[in-house]
């Protein structure tokens, strides 16, 4: 929240009154998979640099259609490429995914907590992404790789439905080549033309080379995947305090007022979306939450 109690506006933009979206232009639209695109957005009236923390999200508004919470998926050090990766899953996300360069989208944010990237210096880092959980983790990976020497071993496990559903395909080929990043990809099913792993991300955890007591883990993906992964990491010896999950709930206001995204005693939009596993584990076990 701002100093006067108002919600934060896009950094570098005059703070909008209340929760009014600011018009941004679609600078480019990159197809990732058959139903997923990455939009590069630029403010129509630039008044300063944009900024965000890894793990934060914006509310993107398609005028006349509606609003959706979308994580910022670009590099925090290059915020002028204000990237948002969107899968066409509902009315708003479909409209977003069809937004053409030159089109206008309303933006308010960034909102929420972020991944504790800098706080994790000196430790091994495990990032586990399922499906469209990679985009919210990518900014954290960029920050870690930029100051790679400050961290111990870095492992990334990325699971998707099929090989065709892997986002950032060209970029992950580069990640595979790095000697300072161990990258494992797994899919739910595949044909004979896939030489990678098939199975859940949890099946890849025994291969992770870490010092558990000195490891921090960032998880983002389907909730049950995060729950099973967190349990497996704890069983491996990673402290529950050092495991962070990005939760997803139906966000509407994004400023902790409407209650749509309530998760136990927290609002995901305001107290999250990134939570410490130890704090939310009791609520992950409650079916009604």
């Amino acid at each position: 929240m701002g100093a006067n109690g108002e919600p934060p506006g896009p950094p570098g933009i005059d703070r909008p009154p209340g929760i009014v979206p600011v018009p941004f232009e679609v600078r480019s639209r990159t197809g990732e998979t058959a139903d997923t695109v990455t939009l590069d957005l630029a403010p129509r009236e630039r008044r300063g640099p944009l900024s965000f923390r890894p793990g934060q999200f914006n509310m993107l508004y398609v005028y006349g259609v509606g609003e959706a919470a979308i994580s910022i998926s670009g590099d925090p050090a290059a915020p002028d490429r204000y990237l948002h990766t969107v899968r066409a899953a509902g009315k708003v996300s479909l409209a977003l995914s069809e937004a053409a360069p030159g089109g206008v989208v309303g933006v308010r944010g960034p909102y929420g907590t972020g991944w504790p990237v800098r706080e994790s210096a000196g430790r091994d880092v495990v990032l586990v992404a399922g499906g469209l959980g990679l985009p919210p983790l990518r900014p954290a990976l960029y920050e870690i790789l930029r100051e790679r020497s400050k961290y111990g071993r870095v492992e990334l496990i990325y699971g998707a439905k099929t090989p065709k559903d892997l986002v950032y395909y060209a970029e992950i080929q580069g990640w595979r080549q790095r000697s300072d990043l161990r990258f494992q990809t797994t899919v739910d099913t595949a044909g004979r033309d896939w030489y990678g792993d098939v199975g859940l991300v949890t099946a890849r955890l025994p291969d992770v080379r870490i010092e558990p007591a000195n490891t921090v883990a960032f998880l983002c993906g389907p909730e049950i995947m995060m729950k099973l992964t967190a349990k497996a990491l704890v069983a491996r010896g990673v402290p529950a305090d050092a495991i962070w999950l990005s939760m997803e709930r139906n966000m509407k206001c994004a400023v902790g007022l409407c209650g749509h995204c309530q998760f136990g005693p927290s609002f995901v939009c305001r107290h999250g979306p990134v939570f410490r596993y130890r704090e939310i584990a009791p609520f992950l076990a409650v079916r009604e939450v």
Partner: peptide, 16 residues
């Protein structure tokens, strides 16, 4: 573990 994997694959978690 493999049964659990199969159940979760049936849920098509990543496809949603």
């Amino acid at each position: 573990q493999r049964l659990e994997n199969t159940r979760l694959q049936l849920l098509d978690l990543h496809g949603r």
